[in-house]
Design a protein around this nucleic acid. Structure first.
Lengths: 209, 209
DNA sequence: ATTGTAACCTATCAATCGATAGGTTTACAA
DNA sequence: TTGTAAACCTATCGATTGATAGGTTACAAT
């Protein structure tokens, strides 16, 4: 019941920097947010930031890592797994959207800076995540579970929905995380499935194994 | 056949500023793009920008207006129109996505700055656009055409998909605009419709009147 | 030829940016 | 008590920012 963000326990400064910075980056963009604004939000002086992070860029870089590291691992595992591709996509979607909703950071700004040359070293893993996602969709089309839609466009639409969810929940660590995740995953599956009656079976299958 | 962007006719400097600025804003963000970068892309000197726009902010403000003015008008007209709500939503979606794809500007950055206090005066029309969109969805749910989903979440998912499309087509004035628009609108309708067999009738109805 | 004006130029400004240097406080182990 | 290291502070740096001042060029109208 006791968690660092809901009870009176003090949150370490470094953690507060990540949270306030992510919130400001999400609202005003990475470049639009100054280190003085971040410091004000954390209630420390501006140079004190550099006691916890080597540079402003490194704050953003850590937020990118938080966003991508676990997601990429889950997506690649599901892409290589056995069983129904539609079920695997559903399982990945629920996990990732739930993760986004539970996250104490506002990861809105990540997609906005990932193409910036400043974060070129973070691009490859993001592209690996995209490839894994598209792979699952293509498997579902080949297996006949999904309509023969444009796999590229479908992958994009999914990313866009998740990206929008990031922007919406915005690091509030919302309590209805699982509910939102299941609603959105259902929305996506309905748009792709040939036979909508399979939906219930896919959900039941995803939740146990 | 002859259009300003495809043939050899010279594009006015003011227009080139809007196009190059929107492209840079989309890639590096509004605050991340300097007026010198814009000027370099247009092949003029930095102070010459201010001969065409009073400030950097006014360049972004004009892009916001381009993105929202026509869209809000169409959405509000369809929200107040007669006939099948599902059909009206489809008609609006195809129009707006097609508009985005045809647009010579990269409007990616608009959603990223709309919450910035710097553009507070542009927020109300954006919210009006959101209200009109949600209104059509609610009408479709009440009429029984759509599943009884969370109207708010559905509206968000739609916005997110369109927002993603903006980021993707990125002011390239893509030739397959209508095709992409119809694919995405179909994707959305499939996720929301109770009876998928109505899809063909909705499309036929939308295209004539 | 002269005037007017739009469109560009060079030179430069004050403000703000991210980051560094170096001193002070705090907490805890020896 | 003393040593020490983390965490913070004030003061300040050079670089870059958006914007202004004022001169030059191109060109159409008179």
């Amino acid at each position: 019941m006791a968690s660092p963000e809901t009870n009176g326990e003090e949150v370490p400064t470094r953690e507060r920097i990540l949270r306030e910075a992510s919130r400001l980056f999400g609202k005003k963009g990475f470049h639009g947010t100054s280190t003085r604004e971040i410091a004000n939000a954390v209630e420390i002086r501006q140079p004190s930031l550099f006691h916890h992070f080597p540079s402003k860029r490194d704050i953003m870089a850590e937020l990118i890592d938080i966003d991508h590291s676990e997601s990429a691992a889950v997506a690649e595992r599901e892409a290589a797994a056995e069983g129904s591709p539609a079920c695997r996509l559903y399982r990945y979607l629920v996990w990732d959207i739930s993760f986004i909703c539970r996250c104490p950071y506002d990861l809105t700004s990540v997609e906005g800076v990932i193409d910036d040359p400043l974060f070129a070293d973070k691009l490859e893993r993001r592209n690996a995540l995209k490839r894994a996602r598209r792979s699952i969709i293509e498997q579902a089309i080949e297996s006949g579970e999904f309509l023969e839609v444009d796999a590229d466009l479908a992958e994009k639409a999914i990313v866009w929905i998740m990206q929008g969810d990031i922007a919406e929940t915005a690091g509030q660590a919302v309590p209805e995380a699982d509910q939102i995740a299941q609603q959105l995953a259902t929305f996506i599956l309905r748009a792709l499935l040939k036979d909508q009656d399979q939906l219930a079976a896919i959900k039941a299958d995803a939740h146990c194994g």
